[in-house]
Simulated scan of single mutants.
Amino acid sequence: MFIRAYLRASTDEQNAGRARDSLERFVQDQNKAIACEYIENASGAASDRPELLRLLKDARKGDVLLVESIDRLSRLPVDDWNKLKAAIDAKGLRIVALDLPTSHQGLRDTKGDEFTSRMLSAINSMLVEMMAAIARKDYEQRRERQAQGIQKAKAAGKYQGRPVDEELHKRVKELLGAGMGIRATARHANCSTTTVLRIRDAAG
């Protein structure tokens, strides 16, 4: 069984690998091991996520797509989610999420009672759909509250935008100054390559 773990964080400042320990403990409890990791900083509402697309390209029938929760996989609107789910199904991937117990059967041998297996698969598919819808709704509500907060702060003359992470900027500049490449810098600074490029370009 080939287990592909997908780890995602929404912003460059967050640690996309934060859930690694939880995922590893989970598969170890199932007497399995993670074979490959795909880590990126990108919004779950974006359909163009390079690492997720790479995972789908690499995947083979019967592989497991392991995530901490369904919202790590998707906060997509319904049309984009349907396209992603179709791509996952076409590859024969089994989605396993730590917070969705019915999905855990995906880490177990498929031999046994076919009727029970199919029933559990159908129930799991329904719950995945439901959780994907909830994740999207949560995303939309948070965006709406954020926009309202910004408007209120602007009206009060208090809105200054997102603060700059001075320590991250300093670290990236030091790594680049030492001759390190973009990808290596991103890895050592624990941020995305997009952030590295933005800091580099801003420094002129």
Rank of each mutant, 00 (worst) to 15 (best):
V27Q: 00
A147W: 09
Q30W: 08
G62I: 04
L73E: 02
F26Q: 15
I123F: 10
I34L: 08
S43F: 07
T116W: 05
A90W: 03
E51G: 01
M119S: 10
A122H: 06
S125A: 11
R8H: 14
G62D: 07
S10K: 07
D12C: 13
K111C: 02
T11A: 06
S47R: 06
A33F: 04
L73T: 03
G106Q: 08
R136V: 01
A90D: 12
M131W: 05
E37P: 06
S74W: 03
I123T: 11
A90F: 02
R20G: 08
K91T: 06
L52C: 02
T110F: 10
R108H: 07
I39V: 15
L93M: 05
T110V: 14
Q14K: 09
D12L: 12
E40A: 07
K32I: 03
S22V: 01
K57Y: 02
K111W: 02
L76P: 00
G92H: 10
K137Y: 09
L107I: 14
M130C: 10
D58A: 09
A132Q: 00
G112R: 13
V27P: 00
I34A: 02
A42Q: 07
D71S: 09
D113V: 12
Q146M: 15
R8K: 14
T11H: 05
P101C: 01
D21V: 07
A46C: 06
Q146L: 14
E68F: 05
G149D: 06
H104Y: 09
Q146V: 12
V78G: 03
A16M: 08
A147C: 08
A147I: 10
R20H: 12
Q146N: 14
M126I: 07
Q148W: 10
R75M: 05
E40T: 09
D29H: 11
S10Q: 10
P77Q: 13
G112Y: 14
V96H: 07
K91N: 03
M126D: 05
D21S: 06
Q105T: 13
Q146Y: 11
D109L: 11
L55D: 04
E144I: 14
E114N: 09
Y139I: 05
Q146P: 04
G106A: 08
E144S: 15
S117F: 10
R142Y: 03
L7G: 01
E24I: 03
V96A: 04
R60P: 00
L55F: 12
A33W: 03
Y139Q: 08
A9E: 03
G112E: 13
W81I: 02
G44D: 04
Y38D: 01
D113S: 15
P50Y: 07
K85Y: 06
A46F: 02
L98C: 13
L65G: 14
A35P: 00
I134H: 15
S69K: 05
S117G: 13
N82H: 08
P101L: 04
D63G: 12
E13D: 06
N15V: 10
A133P: 01
E68K: 02
N41K: 09
K137M: 12
R143W: 10
D12T: 14
G106T: 07
D48R: 08
E37D: 15
D12H: 15
S117L: 10
Q30V: 01
I95R: 05
N41S: 12
G44M: 05
G106E: 07
H104I: 13
D80W: 00
W81G: 00
D109P: 03
A132G: 02
D29E: 14
D48F: 12
R108V: 10
A59I: 04
D138Q: 11
K83T: 00
N41T: 09
L93A: 04
E13T: 04
K61V: 11
